[in-house]
Design a protein around this nucleic acid. Structure first.
Length: 490
DNA sequence: TCTGCCGGGGC
DNA sequence: GCCCCGGCAGA
């Protein structure tokens, strides 16, 4: 059975509200979108009786949670999926993570977020990376870009096959949204008493001279829906200033196109596409070397990299920021290339989605033209994904100005609930959302187990774990019949 | 102990 | 063919 690519789980020009079992689905979508988007709320949801675990947002853009049993961090997101970089488990909370919320500042922030002050905050404050300020190794950046490029490339040939599945219903999501306990919250903004916010740096702050610049309220307001996001160079420059972010330079002539194999645990980088196709054909697809004809399948297994040659000579210490959309066409037409401010976050209760009144709410402006520029969950309640009953990740977002739709993609069966959130819309309507199966070749076949032996247990979560026993009607047929799960195939 | 799912059986 | 479930085996 071939592995299915990501489904389109939402395509909306105004906004929406998603409940999805997989965090990485949403985060990847955010990372790969090039549209202005205002994230009203992102939260992790589990069964109501589940005990929340402290959540950390680490310096690599990964969500992690500490399991009380052994105090070790476990990654809530799959690092390979999220940013293409394997991050080892660490024996404890990030050592370099400073406590960003102390004393009255902490209380002020908690109040701003509408959080229960009596709830004990995470033992160590979470911290959100400002990705372009972090210094990754060249390899890490390549991998990060790769992961995003894969997702984007998978979305290039959408094919409408069916209506939304029966599981598509606003009610479960609504319930989960409302009923989800306001659990421990993690965020990484420091605050003064006036409520102004600024980003702090991730733990791997290897650029000590980079300040954590304040975010003036006025500047933040300029990113509210009332202000168009995409037509103001002033804004862009201001934002770059605010975040200590250099204004994106035009591509230099020293940029060289390389090709990287996306085959799992390969990562070979070659300088020519034909060479890469040959590599994939021979090494991964097991085809004969002398057959030079390509059926195009190889194209799906590698991607282009724009590599700064100057940097290469420095031992790949830095690469030019590469947007996956620069080498792979986007799923939907992009009216213009946006010079993106990395991120703005400001608590803004007045813009709360009608669905989110019971939950901590923040306004988070995410706009990006870089794969690693967009994620910023600012209000997160978490449960360990290892707890029974599954994990829901919900997001509600708006778009400041209706343009091309913002696309969220996820694993097959990812969508469990959605309802729209229009700008200023108090009466959500059920959106008409096609379920799109991207046209992708079958993933590399796993070696077949010897006949007669039981198939080794897969790593993927199955319907039972994802949806829980109480939502058995949402399971795939096979799971209901106690057969091999068809939805979350390994 | 939990969970995925094979194998078998009822309809 | 659809559906259910006992029970095995891996985690």
């Amino acid at each position: 059975m071939g592995t299915q690519g990501p489904e389109l789980i939402s395509s909306s020009t105004t906004g929406g509200n998603l409940l999805c079992p997989f965090i990485e689905d949403i985060l990847l979508s955010l990372r790969t979108t090039s549209k202005p988007i205002i994230v009203l709320e992102m939260s992790l949801r589990g069964a109501a009786d589940q005990k929340p675990s402290p959540l950390y947002f680490n310096g690599q853009g990964l969500l992690e949670t500490a399991e009380p049993a052994n105090g070790r961090l476990r990654h809530l997101t799959d690092p390979l999926v999220l940013n293409g970089r394997k991050v080892e488990e660490r024996p404890g909370p990030p050592a370099a993570a400073p406590s960003l919320l102390e004393g009255s500042d902490k209380e002020a922030v908690l109040r701003l977020l509408g959080l229960d002050l009596e709830q004990s905050p995470p033992p160590q404050s979470a911290y959100i990376p400002v990705p372009r300020q972090r210094k990754l190794s060249g390899k890490a950046r390549i991998d990060e870009v790769m992961a995003a490029a894969v997702l984007t490339s998978l979305s290039t040939s959408p094919l409408v096959l069916a209506n939304p599945p029966s599981a598509f219903s606003p009610e479960p999501g609504c319930e989960a949204w409302k009923d989800g306990p306001a659990m421990s919250s993690s965020y990484s903004s420091s605050s003064n008493n006036s409520g102004d916010w600024s980003w702090d740096l991730p733990s791997d702050r290897s650029t000590p001279s980079t300040p954590s610049p304040p975010l003036p309220s006025d500047a933040a307001k300029s990113f509210l829906p009332a202000a168009p996001l995409d037509d103001s160079t002033e804004e862009t420059e201001a934002t770059h200033f605010l975040f200590g972010d250099p204004i994106p330079r035009k591509r230099k002539n020293s940029t060289k196109v390389m090709f990287k194999c996306l085959w799992k645990s390969c990562g070979k980088v070659l300088s020519s596409s034909s060479g890469m196709q040959k590599h994939i054909r021979i090494v991964h697809l097991g085809r004969k070397a002398d057959l030079d004809q390509s059926d195009g399948e190889e194209d799906f297994y590698y991607t282009e990299l724009d590599v700064n040659v100057d940097s290469l000579t420095d031992g790949l210490s830095s690469l030019t920021p590469v947007s996956p959309t620069s080498s792979v066409p986007p799923a939907f037409p992009v009216p213009e290339v946006q010079t993106a401010p990395p991120l703005l976050v400001k608590p803004e209760v007045s813009l709360v989605s009608p669905l989110s009144h019971s939950a901590p709410t923040n306004l988070c402006h995410v706009q990006t033209d870089h794969a690693y520029q967009a994620t910023a969950p600012v209000s997160i309640s978490a449960v360990s994904k290892t707890l029974p009953g599954g994990l829901g990740f919900s997001i509600s977002w708006q778009q400041p100005s209706p343009q091309a739709p913002v696309v969220f993609k996820g694993s097959p069966g990812c969508l469990t609930a959605i309802r729209p959130v229009g700008v200023g819309d108090k009466r959500p309507q059920i959106p008409h959302l096609p379920v799109i199966k991207p046209h992708v070749p079958a993933a590399p076949a796993a070696p077949k187990p010897a006949s007669g032996t039981r198939k080794p247990r897969g790593e993927a979560k199955k319907c039972r774990k994802v949806y829980g026993m109480e939502n058995r009607d949402m399971w795939c047929t096979a799971c209901r019949w106690k057969k091999a799960c068809q939805r979350f195939v390994d």
